[in-house]
Design a protein around this nucleic acid. Structure first.
Lengths: 217, 217, 217, 217
DNA sequence: CAATAAACGAGACGGTACGTCCCGTCTTCAG
DNA sequence: CTGAAGACGGGACGTACCGTCTCGTTTATTG
């Protein structure tokens, strides 16, 4: 379903009057994804070009243009192939721990080549709104959903304020991560994961209520 | 000072063997910045190219390459010309209010053409580490410093936890903003500014002490 | 007979071990010729391509490649369909008149779309010797034969020099016509037909005998 | 002057308000012509492509497109470089001999690689009217002029009928030559040159006047 | 009269070349 | 002797067609 956003459509074709006679070459499909992934690794996102992917894959350029709308789309799919289903939502019973695990999981992939790929995709998304949309659907949606689940459970269990704007909460977690990924002013490491979760949980202010409680006694 | 980072240097020329008769044409300098700003407005960051800037400015390409290292550098300077000194650090006496004002100020500029320019610069920074560095120095440093000041004052005044990792605090504020700017999944509006400040101040968890207090009554 | 030259053969299939069930679709055959003729008319020879013919005819490309060796072959057959049997050899009893009629007949077809088609075929013949040969056999042979007949009769009747190299005589008539068709420096009109026949009949030199005769009187 | 037709103009630029600052690289110019001539020799007109010329010449494609409008234009200039000033008009005092010499001269170049180049150009001229015009101006004009001169002198000297349509006379000579060059049904050899000149001079009919003279006696 | 094998429409495939856009560098000439 | 003008070598773009190659789907004998 998300594929339709990045691809020109895998033509599921259900119920079509003209079943036509399509027959995508799975061989070429895979060769292209493989070539894209390799070049990404070797040259970095900015230096990958469609001509190189085609040459490396032993494929005509048109075969790429037929199935993907841009370099970004190819790379998104290549990435998806590697990252598919790798974001299980943890459920330790404690929100803080769940969030921490999600972040560690995420940092693991963002600190490999995929990090630079993802950064490149965000860059391209600034220019091409199709890429932007596909990126949101394909990369962000799952991650956001994971946190949404954790926070919802937290509300149910009484750990999290019931009036929390969930989307804002998600932004509060992911925002700093993407910020660091893209601006590179500080690393994505375990200490960051831990401190960030802690900050988002507890806030930065001195807790007034505690003082009040003491005063009331 | 920051200019040295983005430009190839304004050639202060101290100690040069041939001081000779060089002199930068201020006319061309301004024409280039103006052309860049106009094109940015008209076509968006991705569609601006150096050839177009040169043509529009009535300038040879070499004149641009002589003084700037890349399109990003030109646009950063054009932006700087518009945005210079526009980020006063408020001091209302209340951290929450100060942060809120900073964000509103920031959103005002990020929701104009400059927002897309800045997004474009971040995009380019993924490819060109000189741009990345210049961007951090020229755009982020001032903003971060503003919040750093506010939070420090808050610690002094007892509003903010004294053990707060300041840089993390800054990331917690700016991260979600850049995230929304670049990913565009949600707007940068006043409600967001307010809620974000509130969340960062108070955290997302239910305050246990308060519950205890109530239960005890 | 000539078809064998341009087509890959209509596969009369005599003596085949596996006669089996083949059958050329006359429907497709005609649709292709029709589409080719239409496109020729609309776009001109150079802009006709096999993909367009196939699409217009509602036919798979392979169906074209199965029966013809090239675009030129298709167009030659399409032309042949229109022009077949249209070159009767006149016999007025006077060589000059016969030649004139042949040329007028020829100009009639060469000044329509067919003229540009034929020019296109000659162009293609420069690249593809199969086309060249087919063209000679299919288009030129009949025309040349017509003139050959007329000139032979002329020799018999005493109008034409008996020592004339017939092939050269044919070239002398057709050469200027093809020259104008291909180079377009002057039109193929009636005046040209008349003058050309006259020139070829009488030559360009002053007839010495006549002068002598006059002088003698 | 003819150059303006094939080239995009060497920008003689006389009287222009903006004298600009152009400066064509003579090095590249020559390298391109040389590469084109070599490839023509090696592969034949139809197989020469602009990419190959550019590569062979060590030149960007744009440099070719900047100065020539098509492959044909490049090859015409390459040919012109070889053939320039090689068509002196003979003046033996006898029209027949002059024509014969012109033809032998022409056959000498048409039976080398240049013959196929010229055939290729005529082919391309069918598709591209700019090529057609340039070809007429650059290749045909000089040849036609040579014959025009010879025939005019012949009229003056009393060898040629004074009422001869000169352009038709020229077509009568060159037509059969181009016809053979393009259709290749017969060779361009000395015998052909001789017989053709003879035919055009004397015509193909039995000379009636002579008979009349005899009858009058 | 069912099977069977061809020809069919459709169109994906690996390729080649196209003509364009910009890059960053280099060269010329006018002021 | 700077700076506009813009040509240069180069790399990639996205498109158009080439001729070949499967795919199912007719369809007309022939066994």
């Amino acid at each position: 379903m998300l594929e339709q956003v990045e691809n020109k459509g895998t033509q599921t074709n259900s119920g079509s009057k003209v079943p036509s006679t399509r027959r995508r070459s799975e061989r070429s499909h895979q060769a292209i994804l493989k070539a894209a992934a390799e070049l990404l690794e070797e040259k970095g996102y900015g230096s990958v070009c469609i001509e190189a992917i085609a040459t490396r894959a032993g494929v005509g350029k048109q075969t790429i243009y037929r199935w993907w709308s841009s370099k970004a789309a190819v790379i998104m799919e290549a990435y998806a192939a590697q990252a598919a289903g790798n974001f299980p939502t943890p459920d330790t019973g404690k929100v803080e721990e769940d969030l921490y695990q999600i972040l560690r999981q995420l940092f693991t992939i963002l600190t490999t080549t995929l990090g630079s790929a993802v950064a490149g995709l965000v860059a391209e998304a600034q220019t091409d709104s199709n890429v932007a949309e596909a990126f949101r659907d394909l990369f962000l949606a799952d991650h956001r959903e994971a946190i949404r689940t954790v926070l919802s459970q937290g509300i149910t269990s009484g750990e999290i304020r019931p009036d929390l704007n969930l989307e804002l909460g998600i932004d509060a977690i992911y925002g700093p991560i993407w910020y660091r990924l893209l601006v590179k002013h500080a690393p994505l490491d375990d200490a960051f994961a831990e401190e960030l979760v802690n900050l988002v949980m507890e806030g930065i202010q001195v807790v007034a209520e505690r003082k009040m409680t003491l005063n009331m006694t």
